[in-house]
Simulated scan of single mutants.
Amino acid sequence: MNVPLPARHPRTARAAAALLCLAALAACGEQPAPAGSAATTSFTENGVTVTLSLSDWHSPRGTLTAVFTPEEKGFHLYSTDLPATGVGGVGRPTAVAVTGALRAEGKLTAAGEVRTIRVPGVDAPVPVYPDGPVTTTLPVRRDAAGNGDATVLLGYASCSTEEGCTIPVSDRPVHLRLTDEGPAFTGH
């Protein structure tokens, strides 16, 4: 990347060049997160933006956070405790799992308080989070095999009591590489 730098302030110019290089690396999703910082990435699919971060990385452990944000107001996500096929076929659980060089070291938790809704034609109440974003966390650890590739698998569905539902997402992969320098998302 060729960027003209002002000659008057060489320190400022070098700092600006370093920041541009870091921004270019981050835009490619290839920048490893140093110990204690967070590797991040995001994507939007079927009406929800998902932002992933692997933070508090102190090899071999860290915290995988996924923030699920419906694109439109009035949409909610389903509870992480919802059965895989929903309740009476309605809904899909908000899910985060890891494979490859990472292993879950606990249960997925969500910051949102679960409430229930009634859906016409379904006998049981359906557990959902309040409308808007939901933040989930999953403690993870590097597999005993050491460095390598890992995959985060995501599942979710968003619905509105007035507008219906988006198409559910199941096992949506996001790739991650673990190195001695730290974790880095490598694409989605």
Score class of each variant (00 low, 15 high):
Met1Glu: 15
Asn2Val: 07
Val3Trp: 10
Val3Cys: 14
Ala7Asn: 10
Arg8His: 13
Thr12Arg: 12
Ala15Asn: 14
Ala16Phe: 11
Ala17Gln: 09
Ala17Cys: 06
Leu19Lys: 10
Leu20Met: 13
Leu20Arg: 11
Ala24Phe: 08
Leu25His: 03
Ala26Phe: 03
Ala26Arg: 10
Ala27Val: 06
Cys28Leu: 07
Cys28His: 11
Gly29Cys: 00
Glu30Arg: 04
Glu30Asp: 10
Glu30Tyr: 11
Gln31Cys: 05
Ala35Val: 04
Thr41Ala: 00
Ser42Arg: 14
Phe43Trp: 07
Asn46Tyr: 01
Asn46Arg: 08
Val48Ser: 09
Val48Asp: 04
Thr49Met: 07
Thr51Glu: 08
Thr51Trp: 02
Leu52Thr: 00
Leu54Phe: 03
Ser55Arg: 06
Asp56Pro: 02
Asp56Tyr: 06
Trp57Ala: 01
Arg61Glu: 15
Thr63Arg: 03
Thr69Trp: 08
Pro70Ser: 12
Lys73Val: 13
Phe75Lys: 03
His76Tyr: 11
His76Phe: 14
His76Met: 12
His76Ala: 13
Leu77Thr: 06
Thr80Leu: 05
Leu82Ser: 07
Ala84Lys: 14
Ala84Gln: 15
Thr85Val: 09
Gly86Asp: 02
Gly88Gln: 07
Gly89Asn: 07
Val90Pro: 01
Arg92Gln: 12
Pro93Arg: 10
Ala97Asp: 15
Thr99Lys: 11
Thr99Glu: 13
Ala101Ile: 02
Ala101Pro: 02
Leu102Gly: 01
Ala104Tyr: 05
Glu105Leu: 06
Glu105Asp: 15
Gly106Val: 10
Thr109Met: 01
Thr109Leu: 00
Gly112Pro: 00
Val114Cys: 05
Thr116Leu: 08
Ala124Lys: 12
Pro125Met: 06
Val126Asn: 02
Pro130Ser: 10
Pro130Glu: 12
Pro133Ile: 09
Thr136Cys: 12
Thr136His: 02
Leu138Trp: 04
Pro139Asn: 06
Val140Glu: 02
Asp143Val: 09
Ala145Cys: 12
Ala145Met: 12
Asn147Gly: 07
Asn147His: 08
Asn147Glu: 14
Gly148Ser: 11
Gly148Tyr: 08
Thr151Phe: 05
Leu153Gln: 08
Leu153Gly: 06
Leu154Pro: 04
Leu154Tyr: 08
Gly155Asn: 03
Tyr156Pro: 07
Tyr156Cys: 10
Tyr156Ser: 09
Ser158Asn: 15
Cys159Phe: 03
Glu163Met: 13
Gly164Asp: 03
Cys165Pro: 00
Thr166Ser: 14
Val169Lys: 04
Arg172Met: 09
Pro173His: 01
Pro173Cys: 09
Asp180Pro: 06
Glu181Ala: 09
Phe185Ser: 00
